[in-house]
């Protein structure tokens, strides 16, 4: 465990060193992030000028939801996109062999090798929006914050597992580069309460593209409206997809036949 933590720190240092070469981008991207979150909130406000509630949620409650979507989007951008989307490249170029002979689990290596910690500002924006929303709802209690933290972790585990599973498919179909777009779609669909969709789409957004568990459950936890069925459901779902993705990864490794000589 200690060895793994040490490795993660080393990886972060290496990635930061590369990023410092291109630091001009950080300021611009922070500005872009503020602009895009601002536009989302403006659109939300425009919607609520026309209707009193969306799927039974008030403006402030949906605001918390937008904050959660933003936070998760940035976890993807900082962590999963830079790390996991390289799997395809490794496999295509046959570089994967090098990873396999390293003395740590390959899943650990592909998961933590490229953490773009310089982009943390985005995370701050997301958490700020959640905070403002919770304050306006009047649900800022330590219990709700604890619940929010637990279910945010569950969301991150779900997204990670789906991302890993989709990227693992690269072993069989070597051209899946735009896996990330699936996740972006997720962030649009997830910016609204699942109850706002027609019934057939609710099923789709719970089990196929699980925005119900990933965004709705943490938002309900933060605003003190989480039912225990949904809470347990989210935790069970997270465990299930994590085990599934790890299993798929190991299966892929066993069947991997190098692309290089």
């Amino acid at each position: 465990m200690k060895r793994h933590l040490k490795l993660i720190l080393l990886f972060i240092r290496a990635t930061v060193q590369i990023q410092l070469e291109y630091r001009s981008g950080v300021f611009g991207r922070t500005l872009a992030n503020i602009l895009s979150t601002g536009t989302s909130v403006m659109l939300l406000w425009a919607m609520f000028r026309q209707v009193p509630s969306i799927g039974g949620w008030s403006f402030d409650q949906v605001l918390v939801l937008v904050g959660i979507v933003t936070t998760i989007e940035f976890v993807v951008e900082i962590w999963f996109y830079p790390s996991l989307s390289k799997i395809t490249t490794y496999v295509q170029r046959g570089e994967f062999d090098v990873l396999l002979i390293k003395p740590v689990a390959s899943q650990f290596l592909v998961t933590f090798r490229h953490l773009q910690v310089m982009e943390l500002t985005g995370l701050v924006i997301g958490l700020t929006v959640i905070g403002v929303g919770m304050h306006r709802v009047g649900s800022v209690t330590s219990f709700n914050i604890l619940l929010l933290a637990i279910f945010l972790v569950a969301s991150v585990v779900i997204i990670y597992s789906l991302y890993l599973a989709l990227s693992t498919l690269a072993f069989w179909f070597t051209r899946i580069e735009e896996v990330a777009s699936m996740i972006w779609l997720h962030s649009t669909a997830g910016s609204f309460p699942v109850a706002a969709y027609p019934p057939w789409a609710r099923l789709l957004f719970t089990f196929v593209l699980p925005v119900a568990f990933v965004t709705n459950v943490p938002a309900q936890a933060a605003t003190g409206r989480l039912s225990w069925e949904w809470g347990l459901g989210a935790l069970a779902f997270a465990t299930f997809v994590f085990c599934g993705a790890t299993w798929l990864w190991n299966l892929a490794i066993r069947n991997y036949s190098s692309a290089s000589s």
Binding site: Q50, I54, F173, R175, E177, W184, L185, A196, P198, A201
Partner: peptide, 30 residues
């Protein structure tokens, strides 16, 4: 295969249509 994934990304208007259609059940909006 890549085109299809890009197209999935472009389905946002369809998702928004589902939401607005639900909202419009209570009568026309604007």
């Amino acid at each position: 295969a890549q085109s299809v994934l890009w197209m999935i990304n472009g389905t946002v208007p369809l998702i928004m249509m589902l939401i607005w259609l639900q909202l419009a059940k209570g009568g026309p909006i604007g």
